[in-house]
Design a protein around this nucleic acid. Structure first.
Lengths: 368, 368
DNA sequence: CTGAAAGCGCTAACAG
DNA sequence: CTGTTAGCGCTTTCAG
C-alpha cells in the first residue's frame, strides 16, 4: 500500500552522489566512474527504483513511444503487424501504445489525438479510409509517420508501405481463369478502401479481358459474421458461381461461412481463392489456395522506414514502399472444363437460371 | 518541419489569460467563465494545441495509462482481450500501452519493467507462467493489478479473472464420452500452464471414471505450425484415436493441420472438440464443436475489476472472478457405437495395433 | 472565478 | 568525471 514512489533523489541520497550522476548511470549518456556506478545501481536496486519515463521524456524532449493505430486489432492481419512492430520497438527501447479505430473515422480521429498527446517519436498507422487521417495532415511539427496498407495509390506525401494490390488481384484472377472459371464473384470488404479497390479493378480487368464476362463484385464488409449474412443472402438469390475470389481474410471467412450454411463444397461445387495466409486456411482437408501478403515484411518495412524518418527528420522525400504478393496454391481451386454453353454469351442465361432454382431449393432445405 | 511545439503558455498568451485558466479549461477540473472558456478553446484550436500527457501526468500524479501484457498478440484469444480493453479504456480517457512477452519469462520481466516505468494507473496481465510475474510480486506501491487466464488456482493474493477450467475440460470430455468415444487424445499446449493443467486434469478424471481408459496427453506447444509438426509425428507412430480434445485455439489448429496432412476426416474418421470459438471454426462444412470461453466477458470483468481497484486502493480483498465456459455443439463429434472389443480391457490392444498399421500405411501414402 | 508562483522527476548545461 | 542549477509543460495551491 504505497509509500511514496522512489525518485532519483532518493537513489542519489542513498548512494551519496548527485542526481545528475544517477541520471547518467541509468541513461548511460555520460560515463560514470565504475565504483560509483556500482554504488548507484546497488542503491537503485535496493530501493526498487526505475526511471520515470514521463518525467524523462518531458525534460529531455527525447521520447520513447511509438504509436500504432489500426482499424481492428482482432483482425489477424493487423494483429500480426502490431506484434511485429512491438517486438522490434521494444528491442530498441521503445514502448508501443496502440489504438484501434474500429474502422470508424470519428473514432480514428479521436484515438489519433490521444496518441499524439503522448508526443510519440513516431507513428505507424493503418488508416481506416484512404486519406491521410485529418489529424495527421497538418503535420507541422514533422512527426515521423508511416502509413500502411490503406493508402491510396496517389498519396505520395507520406512514407507508406503497401503491397502491389493490382498484382495481388490479378494473380488470383489469373489462377481462376486459367482453371477454366468464368462466372466469378469477387468478395469485397468495402469497395472504397484503396487496396481493395485496386485488387478488384485489376482482377476484373483481367477476367473481362480473358473471358468477356464481368465478375460480380459483392461488398460484405469488415466483420466476418455480418459478411457471412450478406453473402448468404446473395447466395439465396443467385446461382452458385464458378468461383469466388476473396479480397481480405475477413471476406474469406465470410464466404466460407456462407458456403457452410448451404453445404456448398469447395472446390467440388465452386472454387475459392482466399486472401491472406492465415494458419486456419491450411488446417483443413482441402487447404485454401490463397493470395499471401508478406505481413512480416510489411511490418518490418514500416518499422524500418519509421526509424529512418526518426533519424532524418525532413530530408529525404516520402517513399512508397511496395511489396509483392504471391499465390499459395493449395486445393480450393478445381479445374473446370470449358463451358460448352458459350462463355459471355447471352444464351447462357438459361444455364444460369437453372442454377438459380437449384440454389433456391438448397437454400430452403438448408436454412433452419 | 516543425516550429516549436505549442505549449500551454502559447495558448494562454493568445487567449490573454493565465496558464492556470487554460489548464482548467482543458482538464475541466475547475469551472471557467464561459466567455473565457470559448476564447481559450478557440486559441487552442488555432494553435493546434493539445495537452502534453507526459507533462500532465508528471505534475498531477494522476496517470491515464493502462498497461496490458499478454504472451502473444497474434493469438486471437489475447488479441480479442486487448481489443476489448483498449475500447473500454479509451472510452474513459485512458490509453493502452501493450507489450507481448512472447511466452518467455525473461522477456516478460523486461517488458513489465518498461510498462511500469510509465507509472500506469493499472495493469492487466496474462502471465506467461502461472506465478505472479516477479516484477509485480513486490507490489509495494499498490499498483492495481488484474491477472487474467494464466493464474494458478491457489494464487489468491491478487485480483484475477479466469474461467472454470475444470468445468471446461469436463464439458468437452463428457461430450466425447457420451458420444461413445474411448481412446481420446488431449492436445495440450504446455502442461505446466495452470488453466491447461486444470482442463486436462478434469477431463482425464472424467474420462477414466467413465471409460476406464486413460486419455493420452500430448503437448504441442503454443505455436500452431510447430504443434502441427509434433502432432503429425505422433500420428505417424500411433493409431488414430477415437477423438481429440483440444485445450486452446492454437492446439485446435495444430491438430487440424496434422489431420489435414493425413487426410483424416472429421468426424468420420475421428472426432474433435475444439477450444475457443474462433470464427474460422464455424466457417467450414463440418463446423467445429467447441468449448467456448466468454472472451468478451473476461475482458470486461478484468477491466471492471481494474477500475474498481483503481478507485479503492488497498481496501477490499483480492477477488478471483471465475467465469463459465460452454459447449457449442456443431458437427465435429460423431456418435460412435460402443466398442465391442471391450473398453479398457487389455485385449483391445490388438484392435489398437491393427489401427497402428493402418495409420502407418496411410502416413506413407499421404506424406509428400 | 482568475492569476502568480511553486514544483512533479528528470536531464542539459555548465562549472568545478 | 561529478555536482549545481535551471527548467521541460503542466497542475496546483493560495491569494486576490
Amino acid at each position: 500500500m504505497g509509500g511514496k514512489r522512489v525518485s532519483i533523489r532518493d537513489v542519489a541520497a542513498r548512494a551519496g552522489v548527485s542526481t545528475a550522476t544517477v541520471s547518467n548511470v541509468f541513461s548511460g549518456r555520460k560515463a560514470v566512474n565504475d565504483a560509483l556506478r556500482k554504488r548507484v545501481l546497488q542503491a537503485g536496486a535496493e530501493l526498487g527504483y526505475s526511471v520515470d519515463r514521463a518525467a524523462s521524456q518531458l525534460r529531455s524532449g527525447r521520447t520513447s513511444v511509438i504509436a500504432v493505430l489500426v482499424p481492428d486489432l482482432t483482425d489477424t492481419f493487423f494483429a500480426t503487424i502490431v506484434t511485429s512492430i512491438e517486438a522490434r520497438a521494444s528491442m530498441l527501447g521503445y514502448d508501443v501504445i496502440v489504438a484501434s479505430s474500429r474502422d470508424d473515422r470519428a473514432t480514428e480521429a479521436s484515438r489519433l489525438k490521444a496518441l499524439l498527446a503522448w508526443r510519440p517519436a513516431g507513428i505507424i498507422a493503418v488508416p481506416c479510409s484512404n486519406d491521410m487521417p485529418a489529424a495527421l495532415t497538418d503535420n507541422s511539427d514533422g512527426l515521423p509517420v508511416v502509413l500502411v496498407d490503406r493508402v491510396a495509390r496517389d498519396l505520395r506525401s507520406v512514407d507508406s508501405v503497401v503491397i502491389d494490390n493490382a498484382d495481388a488481384g490479378e494473380i488470383a484472377a489469373r489462377h481462376l481463369v486459367e482453371h477454366g472459371h468464368r462466372h466469378i464473384v469477387i468478395a469485397s470488404s468495402r469497395n472504397e478502401i484503396a487496396p481493395i479497390a485496386e485488387r478488384i479493378a485489376a482482377a476484373s480487368r483481367f477476367i473481362v479481358d480473358k473471358t468477356g464476362i464481368e465478375p460480380t463484385v459483392l461488398e460484405v464488409g469488415t466483420v466476418p459474421e455480418q459478411g457471412a449474412g450478406i453473402f448468404t443472402k446473395w447466395l439465396e438469390r443467385h446461382p452458385v458461381p464458378d468461383a469466388v475470389m476473396a479480397t481480405t481474410n475477413v471476406t474469406t471467412l465470410a464466404v466460407l461461412s456462407a458456403f457452410a450454411r448451404f453445404h456448398i463444397a469447395v472446390p467440388d461445387r465452386t472454387s475459392l481463392v482466399a486472401f491472406d495466409d492465415d494458419t486456419w486456411m491450411s488446417a483443413r482437408n482441402t487447404g485454401l489456395t490463397a493470395v499471401r501478403q508478406p505481413v512480416e515484411e510489411i511490418a518490418e518495412a514500416a518499422f524500418e522506414r519509421l526509424m529512418f524518418r526518426m533519424n532524418h527528420a525532413g530530408d529525404a522525400k516520402p517513399k512508397s514502399i511496395v511489396l509483392g504478393a504471391s499465390l499459395v496454391v493449395r486445393a480450393s481451386v478445381a479445374r473446370r472444363s470449358a463451358d460448352p454453353r458459350g462463355d459471355g454469351d447471352e444464351t447462357d442465361i438459361e444455364g444460369h437460371m437453372r442454377t438459380v432454382e437449384e440454389a433456391r431449393r438448397r437454400a430452403k432445405n438448408s436454412l433452419h
